[in-house]
Design a protein around this nucleic acid. Structure first.
Length: 281
DNA sequence: CCGTAATCCTGGGCGC
DNA sequence: TGCGCCCAGGATTACG
C-alpha cells in the first residue's frame, strides 16, 4: 500500500510522463471519486488544463495546473495511474478504471482503483487557502520538532506505533514503515508513547526518514499490490526486516518474528516485531 | 477533548 | 474445484 516513499515515486513517475501535457477531455466513470463536486463539474474542472507541477505532501498528491487550480488526490490502498492507449479503452474495458484524462496523441491517463477507496478533491484557482486535509498535516520525520512531539505525548495513553501512524504528528509513515522504524529503533510497538525519552523519539524520526529515503531510491516497496505508474514494481520489499516476516527468524538475533494486532485489539492493524530485539516485557 | 470502533471495498489466500 | 471465510489497511466519521 502506498506510503510516503511509494507516493513519492508515483509523483516522480507522473512528473516525467505528464508535465507540459494538456487534458483535452476528462471522463469520470464513477461519481464517488469526486470528493467535492458533481460529475459534470468534476469533468469540466479538468478539461483544457495543462499539468504544471506534481508533488506530494506525505501520502497526498497535489496536481498543480497552468491556471493555478489544483487537485488533491489520495490513492489510499489500491489507487494506481496508468498511461493507456486511448484506442485500447473500448477494446479491453480495463477493470476498475474509474477516471480517464484524455491527453491526445492516443494517450489517456487512467486512474484505476480496485477497492475504490481513493479520492480526488478539486480546488479552484480562487481558493488560495490550503485544503484542510493538507494544512493539518505534520512534518516529515526529519523536520519533526522533538521537544514539541515529546510534550504532546505526555498527555496521551496511546502506543508509540499509533503515534507513528498519526499523520497529524508525523508525516508519511504507514503500516510497513512503522514496523520497520520500530524494529530499527529496537522499540516495542505497543510501548506507551509517553514512556519514551526525547532521545528515543529522535532515534525513531532518524530511522523513519532514513528507511523511507532508502525505499524511494529503490522505487518503494511492492507488497500485496503496490505498483507505481504503469505497473512498475518497487524493490525495497527485499530490504524489509520485520514486515511480512512473521514466523521467520529475526535477521538480527534469530528469534521468531511475531505478528499481532496493533494494541492487541480486534480491529488493530497487523503489527510485526521481534520480541527479543524490541524488548517485549 | 480523547480514544476507539466502524466504515469504505475487492482480490487473494487458505482450509475444508 | 469451489465455496466461504478472513485478511490487507488510510483516513474519516460516529459515538461514548
Amino acid at each position: 500500500m502506498p506510503e510516503y516513499p511509494e507516493v513519492t515515486v508515483v509523483c516522480q513517475s507522473l512528473s516525467k510522463l505528464l508535465l507540459g501535457k494538456k487534458i483535452n477531455n476528462c471522463e469520470l466513470l464513477s461519481e464517488k471519486f469526486a470528493k467535492n463536486s458533481s460529475v459534470k463539474d468534476f469533468e469540466e474542472f479538468f478539461n483544457n488544463k495543462t499539468f504544471k507541477k506534481i508533488n506530494n505532501t506525505g501520502k497526498f498528491i497535489e496536481f498543480i495546473f497552468d491556471d493555478k487550480s489544483r487537485a488533491i488526490v489520495h490513492l489510499r490502498m489500491e489507487g494506481k495511474f496508468f498511461i493507456r492507449k486511448t484506442s485500447d479503452l473500448e477494446k479491453y474495458r480495463f477493470k476498475h478504471d474509474h477516471i480517464y484524462f484524455h491527453l491526445g496523441n492516443d494517450e489517456t491517463l487512467a486512474y484505476n482503483d480496485s477497492r475504490g477507496f481513493g479520492s480526488f478533491e478539486t480546488i479552484s484557482k480562487e481558493n488560495k487557502l490550503s485544503v484542510k486535509e493538507i494544512k493539518n498535516l505534520a512534518n516529515l520525520p526529519k523536520d519533526v520538532d522533538i521537544d514539541y512531539l515529546y510534550k504532546k505525548l505526555q498527555n496521551t495513553t496511546r502506543s508509540i506505533k499509533t503515534i507513528l501512524l498519526d499523520q497529524k504528528l508525523v508525516l508519511g509513515i504507514g503500516n510497513i514503515y512503522a514496523d520497520e522504524t520500530l524494529f530499527a529503533s529496537k522499540i516495542f510497538p505497543m510501548e506507551k508513547a509517553k514512556n519514551l525519552s526525547k532521545a528515543q523519539l529522535k532515534t525513531l524520526m532518524d530511522n523513519a526518514q532514513r528507511i523511507m529515503d532508502e525505499s524511494i531510491k529503490l522505487g518503494g516497496s511492492t507488497v500485496h499490490s503496490y505498483q507505481s505508474v504503469n505497473g512498475i514494481d518497487g524493490k525495497f520489499q527485499q530490504r524489509l526486516k520485520v514486515y511480512g516476516r512473521a514466523k521467520l527468524n529475526c535477521l538480527e538475533c534469530g528469534s521468531f518474528v511475531k505478528k499481532v494486532k496493533l494494541d492487541f485489539k480486534q480491529n488493530g492493524r497487523g503489527t510485526s516485531y521481534c520480541p527479543n530485539c524490541q524488548n517485549e516485557k
